Amino acid sequence: MRDEEEIREQYEFLEEQLESDEMNHDGVERMFTYYKRAIGWVLEEEHI
């Protein structure tokens, strides 16, 4: 189970990465993977 601080850190990391001017196709694909993982954590928290 993830705590709120961990989810918040993940969100901030994603935000920084998406704002980066160096984002390329691979980077965007990797960010979507992280995003889906973070969303999964939130949903996991709500269903437990």
Score class of each variant (00 low, 15 high):
R2Q: 08
R2G: 12
R2I: 10
D3G: 03
D3L: 01
E4K: 07
E4T: 13
E4D: 11
E4W: 06
E5V: 03
E5N: 07
E5A: 08
E5S: 00
E5T: 05
E6H: 04
E6I: 06
E6F: 03
E6C: 10
E6Y: 01
E6D: 08
I7T: 04
I7H: 00
I7A: 03
I7M: 06
I7W: 03
I7V: 05
R8D: 07
E9M: 09
E9D: 12
E9A: 07
E9L: 07
Q10A: 14
Q10L: 15
Y11G: 13
Y11R: 15
Y11E: 00
Y11Q: 06
Y11W: 12
E12G: 10
E12V: 09
E12Y: 02
F13W: 15
F13S: 03
L14P: 00
L14Y: 03
E15L: 11
E15T: 04
E15A: 01
E16A: 05
E16W: 06
E16P: 02
E16T: 03
Q17I: 10
Q17R: 11
Q17V: 15
Q17W: 02
Q17S: 14
L18W: 12
E19F: 11
E19M: 13
E19W: 09
E19H: 12
S20A: 13
S20Q: 03
S20D: 05
S20C: 00
S20Y: 09
S20K: 10
D21Q: 15
D21K: 01
E22R: 01
N24A: 08
N24Y: 01
N24D: 08
H25E: 01
H25F: 13
H25M: 12
D26S: 01
D26L: 14
D26G: 04
D26E: 10
G27W: 04
G27R: 14
G27M: 03
G27H: 11
V28R: 07
V28D: 09
V28S: 06
V28W: 09
E29K: 02
E29G: 10
E29M: 08
E29V: 02
R30H: 09
R30I: 02
R30Y: 10
R30E: 11
R30L: 05
M31C: 12
M31G: 00
M31V: 13
F32K: 06
F32Q: 06
F32Y: 09
F32E: 08
F32N: 10
F32M: 08
T33R: 15
T33P: 08
T33E: 14
Y34E: 09
Y34F: 02
Y34D: 07
Y34A: 06
Y35W: 11
Y35F: 10
Y35P: 00
Y35M: 13
Y35I: 13
Y35E: 12
K36Y: 09
K36E: 09
R37F: 07
R37M: 06
R37W: 04
A38M: 14
A38C: 13
I39S: 07
G40C: 06
G40N: 04
G40I: 04
W41V: 05
W41E: 09
W41Q: 10
V42D: 05
V42T: 04
L43Y: 15
L43Q: 07
L43F: 10
L43S: 09
E44S: 12
E44K: 11
E44Y: 14
E44T: 15
E44R: 13
E44M: 15
E45M: 14
E45W: 14
E45F: 11
E46H: 00
E46T: 02
E46G: 01
H47Y: 11
H47Q: 15
H47D: 15
I48W: 11
I48T: 09
I48R: 02
I48S: 02
